[in-house]
Write a protein that binds this DNA or RNA. Structure first.
Length: 924
RNA sequence: AGACCCGUAGCUCAGUUGGUUAGAGCGCUGCCUUGACAUGGCAGAGGUCAGCGGUUCAAGUCCGCUCGGGUCUACCA
């Protein structure tokens, strides 16, 4: 083995082996428990970001864990066709050649999209492989696959037939750039600086005017009322009168509605029902006319005076203001901060716009979806996210599912010239069903379905539904959904509704909600902020110049480049070293606590790369000492387990238990911590050191040496299996080298059984003995460290006081103690025997004395003792106060009181000994 | 405006139903190339657990308020 761990030398090769050998497929063992995770399908246009890396790493850990537990395990993988995003990507590519999608026509364009998908749609799945993800690639699905397409059509038709889908003219969020409706969730409301314009609206009878305030002057051309609060003393007498709307020269009514906030602005509101959601509601209440003044580009249409016809909306705004000003009707302009709705893909201001769209009636679906969570059929982890789910579900709006795009699931609805709608699987089916004449012309709806409509069917659509496939039977409902909280509304809610309706069962039993990965400053990672980290760069490494270049090219605002460059150079002066996949994954796990934000500190990944190196080198040591040697793996019993052997075996059982518990409760941070401590602290720092005096001692018995080798190799092999779900590559690489010595057969660690703790191997005697040994060694090391005695210098140790147990333990561990504390000799002082001037440490009642002759500075030692005495004093006072409080003694449980009393006597005795030592030093 | 989350060492974070002297990693200080590992070893410094009040024999942990930070939902025309 190389002296240092080189991740790039092992990772890709193992991945290929695993995939080629089909290790990722379900075992197919129908006796075993099924375990199934459906990947939240990444956007086919996407490339892997830190959030994906985090999420996929978690899923892979769960999958590998359950596969090793022997479950029939399926990780279903696939991608999402991402209607808008994909269409935009392909349009941009065509645009570079000067071709628009309209030049091509719908069919040709869709062909182009498929072409793009075949060539470039695999980026993210290739990157997933770099992470070591182990989904069943042979079952990979795409939301536009034929089978899936059928399922989507089927769902639409059945919902329509059941009266849960309808078509209606409503206000939708219209993206004037992309020319499609988008959902509320795709609209970002950000605060922006704007103005509040106050206009005078003259009363029709010439008796005066009202002042209305607006942030969108151009919409006044579509006003159909002015509203005031019905109890507003200032205006209530005007209700029922009319306003002569300037510019448009129409008469519109003044209405009373308690939606109006008397305190805001002037207390008079212009009402534009066709261009504002609230005004629309009010229009419905008061039967107001809807005047649509915008076309699909958000330019003014022919419903406005000719002067404004065809004007762009912001130009029209300026014109309207100027014209009203010229008429003397502009009262004032105030600066005003308002939330501006923008499309999350296009970035342009979204218009509420009146269109015909398809809707899902969500309320009946939501009821069952709420009940499933209330009844505990679906559990959220952490539980607090259930509130978020409930609050969304209980206030759910009908879901607009049509999109004015070409790329997507085309809506299976046809129209005749009379405007009748027919929904069915094909034109042919519709003609038959409705006995339509062949010469009656039908045209299919041009729109496609919201991408989330299809991803809502993901859990069962990927398993072959509507056919009752064996996979559907075995793996649905899936076991757990792993997702970010930002997607609960988008996706979780929709899967719940659609799956419950069509499968009559929940889509998954558990929803594990993880936090969002942010940068080390807590900022969301985004291209425009220039703080994105590509997980692949952490795996392979990247130099600073390439990183700067990557972050500063293709910016939406190129002027940000210098700032981004400066910050990048400051944060990562060396770029990234190649840390490898296992270190990256381990970092993710260590951060996977229950919080909402996961601040990714690159500093941590280096620590875990070092951890990998530690495992690597510990394995080298084990192999050096075991290779070609008898490790008692042939069933022989002529070996003897030492105290240290029994101790590490005992600790291993506890670690196995802790790791399993953590994995079962989705606490990957705790699992990674437990493993890290065991491997580094206990196995490497202590056990390997304890094995050296045995293996290198010529006088040690063959049986004990054999027992030590047996323990070295067995504990290592078990630990590798325990760690495999978290760090698949390094564990496989090392396992292949130790498996023969450990008498394991099998081609891969992936399919080995997961370690299970054995209570009979918990050895409290050995634990107590090693705890004692550690305490004594640490006492001596403390003196050595504080007194700056070279580790190479062998020193004598005198022991005073202590119990028979101490003396027994000493004899059991004398050899280990001598080696590990680097001692020249160990001498027990007899009762009353005078000790030379010494530095002191305590191990319980036992005094550890290191004679000072030439080694130790008296002043430094007395300072050290004083510090120790003071520390004890503080705690002593605390405990004394506690014990002298009768309430505590009376009310606290007896064992708590006893514990405090023991503590007190122990500390008093310790302090007394230290004081005596201090006295002795002072007497010198 | 409503709801939720967070505030623990210089930094990033653990701390299960209240009960040893509040832990880890990174960083920092000192010593050390000792036969797995300097991507290392040993030792050490560093915390009024945001603040105030309450419940309790006992609060980082439970309750209330304040301050600070964040997220989501709704929204003021």
């Amino acid at each position: 083995m190389d002296k240092t761990y080189q991740p790039n030398a092992i990772e890709q090769q193992w991945y290929q082996t695993w995939e080629e050998n089909g290790y990722f497929k379900p075992s197919g063992d129908t006796e075993a428990d099924p375990y199934c995770i459906m990947i939240p399908p990444p956007n086919v246009t996407g490339s892997l970001h830190m959030g994906h890396g985090f999420q996929e790493s978690i899923m892979d850990a769960l999958i590998r864990y359950h596969r090793m537990l022997g479950d029939n395990t399926l990780w279903q993988v696939g991608t999402d066709h991402a209607g808008i995003a994909t269409q935009m990507v392909v349009e941009r590519l065509l645009g570079a050649e000067g071709v628009s999608r309209h030049d091509l026509g719908r069919d040709k364009f869709i062909e182009k999209v498929w072409e793009w998908k075949r060539e470039s749609g695999g980026t993210i799945t290739r990157q997933l492989r770099r992470l070591g993800a182990s989904p069943d690639w042979s079952r990979e699905r795409f939301t536009m696959d034929d089978g899936f397409y059928q399922a989507v059509q089927e769902v639409f038709i059945r919902l329509y037939e059941d009266g849960l889908i309808y078509r209606g003219k409503r206000l939708v969020n219209w993206d004037p750039k992309l020319h499609t409706a988008i959902s509320d969730l795709e609209v970002l409301n950000e605060e922006e600086q704007g103005h509040l314009w106050h206009f005078r609206y003259p009363l029709s009878d010439g008796s005066g005017h009202l002042v209305v305030a607006t942030t969108r002057p151009e919409t006044m051309l579509g006003d159909t009322a002015v509203a005031v609060h019905p109890e507003d003393e200032r205006y209530r007498h005007l209700i029922g009168k009319t306003i002569r709307l300037p510019l448009a020269e129409r008469d519109i009514p003044i209405i009373g509605d308690d939606y109006v906030d008397r305190e805001f602005g002037t207390g008079c509101v212009k009402i534009t029902p066709a261009h504002d959601f609230n005004d629309y509601e009010m229009g419905q209440r008061h039967n107001l006319e809807l005047i649509n003044i915008l076309d699909a580009d958000a330019n003014l249409n022919d419903a406005v005076p000719e002067k404004y016809l065809g004007m762009e909306r912001f130009a029209a705004r300026k014109q309207v203001v100027d014209d009203l000003d010229a008429l003397g009707l502009l009262e004032k302009i105030e600066p005003h901060t308002l939330k501006v709705p923008r499309g999350d893909r296009s970035g342009v201001v979204i218009e509420p716009w009146l269109t015909d769209q398809w809707y899902v009636k969500t309320q009946p679906l939501a009821e069952d979806a709420i009940k499933a969570v209330e009844d505990g059929q679906v559990n959220f982890v952490p539980k607090s996210y259930e509130n978020m789910y409930f609050s969304w579900m209980r206030d759910i709006q009908d879901w607009c599912i049509s999109r004015q795009l070409w790329w997507g699931h085309r809506i299976p609805a046809w129209y005749d010239d009379a405007g009748n709608v027919y929904v069915g699987r094909s034109e042919k089916e519709i003609r038959e069903k409705h006995s339509l004449d062949d010469d009656l012309s039908l045209r299919q709806d041009d729109d496609v379905l919201d991408t989330w409509f299809s991803s809502g069917l993901w859990t069962f659509g990927t398993l072959g539904w509507p056919e009752e496939t064996p996979e559907l039977k075995a793996f649905h409902p899936s076991s757990v959904l792993v997702t970010g909280f930002d997607i609960i509304f988008f996706w979780v809610a929709r899967m719940m509704m659609l799956t419950l309706y069509f499968k009559k069962e929940v889509p998954f039993h558990t929803v594990y909600v993880h936090g969002l990965v942010r940068d080390n400053h807590g900022q969301k990672m985004s291209k425009s902020k220039g703080n994105v980290i590509d997980p692949i760069d952490l795996i392979d490494g990247i130099d600073l110049e390439s990183l700067v270049k990557k972050r500063t090219t293709g910016l939406m605002r190129p002027k940000d480049a210098p700032k981004i460059e400066k910050q990048t150079r400051k944060d990562f002066p060396e770029g990234f070293a190649p840390f490898g996949t296992d270190a990256l994954r381990y970092t993710y796990y260590s951060l996977a606590a229950t919080g909402r934000d996961i601040k990714f500190d690159v500093g941590r990944i280096e620590g875990f790369r070092n951890f990998c190196n530690k495992i690597w080198n510990a394995s080298r040591y084990v192999l050096q000492n075991c290779d070609g040697q008898d490790c008692a793996q042939d069933g022989s019993e002529d070996f003897e387990l030492s105290l240290a052997d029994r101790w590490i075996i005992s600790q291993l059982q506890k670690t196995e238990k802790a790791v399993r518990e953590a994995m079962d409760s989705y606490r990957f941070d705790l699992a990674s911590q437990a493993l890290y401590d065991f491997i580094w602290q206990e196995y490497c720092s202590w056990y390997l050191e304890l094995s050296k005096p045995v293996l290198w001692d010529d006088s040690a018995s063959a049986a004990v040496k054999k027992g030590t080798r047996r323990t070295l190799i067995r504990v290592l092999e078990t630990t590798l299996r325990l760690a495999h779900p978290l760090m698949p590559f390094i564990t496989e690489e090392i396992w292949q080298r130790v498996k023969t010595l450990a008498r394991k057969s099998g081609d891969t660690i992936m399919l080995q059984p997961y370690p299970a703790p054995n209570e009979h191997k918990i050895d409290t005697d050995a634990e107590a003995a090693v705890a004692w040994l550690k305490e004594v060694i640490e006492g001596v090391r403390n003196i050595r460290g504080e007194m700056n005695i070279s580790p190479a210098k062998k020193i004598p140790l005198l022991l005073r006081g202590g119990s028979d147990t101490d003396r027994q333990l000493l004899e059991q561990t004398r050899n280990l103690l001598t080696k590990l504390a680097s001692l020249e000799s160990i001498t027990c002082l007899k009762q009353g025997e005078p000790a030379p001037a010494s530095a002191t440490a305590l191990a319980g009642d036992l005094e550890l004395l290191v004679p000072m002759a030439g080694l130790i500075d008296v002043e430094a030692e007395s300072a050290r003792l004083k510090k120790e005495i003071d520390k004890l004093e503080k705690e002593l006072v605390r405990v004394q106060v506690k014990l002298s409080n009768p309430k505590f003694v009376d009310k606290a449980p007896a064992e708590v009181v006893a514990k405090e009393k023991d503590k007190l006597t122990e500390m008093q005795s310790a302090q007394m000994r230290l004081k005596q030592q201090l006295q002795a030093l002072d007497n010198l």
